[in-house]
């Protein structure tokens, strides 16, 4: 059973619809008690760093998610769900993120912001998630901030938008992507299926 953390911002249900389409069992987790019984966790998200952390706080989900991450249990962060794994965002530096990865979350300073549309992901380090996907495969992006990790070793996918930045990271059982696999047609469904299939 996959738990999709719902903290009430943006369109979080689209991840559930994609998992339903793939035939993967999932349920929405909106309270600490609902984490009981799930084997994998997805932290989706669009919107703002501060609002996300505040909503998670309101729903008392920060501690259970932090514990999940600390125990290196199967996890997929999507978009903002990737960014809040870091220490803090440039947009609201006083609001701490989960801080399991060191590094900043700066705003794009070039091109149109937010980046909205399809861009390539170069799998700089192949992982189980990129299996069966061509290097440079297209995914849908929708973000104004990006992650700048201190440890280069966690980066497994990169994208160019005026600068080259990490669009996919992994350490142990923790995976996170900057793009939206649930909105990336066949490539996205393939990547989600790969994650679902991880044992």
């Amino acid at each position: 059973m996959i738990g999709i953390v719902d903290y009430g911002a943006g369109n979080l249900r689209s991840v559930k619809k994609a998992l339903d389409f793939l035939g993967a069992e999932s349920r929405i987790v909106a309270a600490p008690g609902e984490i009981e019984g799930i084997e994998k966790m997805i932290l989706p998200g669009v919107g703002a760093f501060r609002a996300a952390m505040e909503k998670l706080q309101e729903k008392k989900l920060i501690q259970p998610v932090a514990e999940w991450l600390a125990e290196d249990r199967p996890f997929l962060g999507i978009c903002l769900g990737m960014q809040i794994l870091f220490e803090s965002g440039e947009e609201s530096p006083e609001v701490p993120g989960f801080g399991i990865f060191r590094g900043a979350v700066p705003r794009f300073r070039q091109g149109r912001v937010p980046q909205i549309g399809w861009n390539r992901v170069r799998f700089s380090r192949p992982t189980l998630l990129s299996e069966g996907l061509e290097d440079g495969a297209f995914f849908y992006f929708l973000h104004g901030f990006y992650v700048a990790p201190q440890e280069a070793s966690i980066v497994c996918g990169e994208t160019e938008y005026g600068i080259r930045y990490p669009s996919m990271i992994q350490r142990g059982n923790i995976y996170a992507v900057q793009f939206h696999p649930e909105k990336s047609a066949d490539n996205g469904l393939k990547l989600l299926q790969n994650w679902v299939d991880l044992s």
Binding site: A9, G10, N11, V46, A48, I116, H143
Partner: peptide, 8 residues
């Protein structure tokens, strides 16, 4: 934008 994010 405040409620759902500027991107939507």
């Amino acid at each position: 934008a405040a409620r759902f994010g500027a991107q939507c």
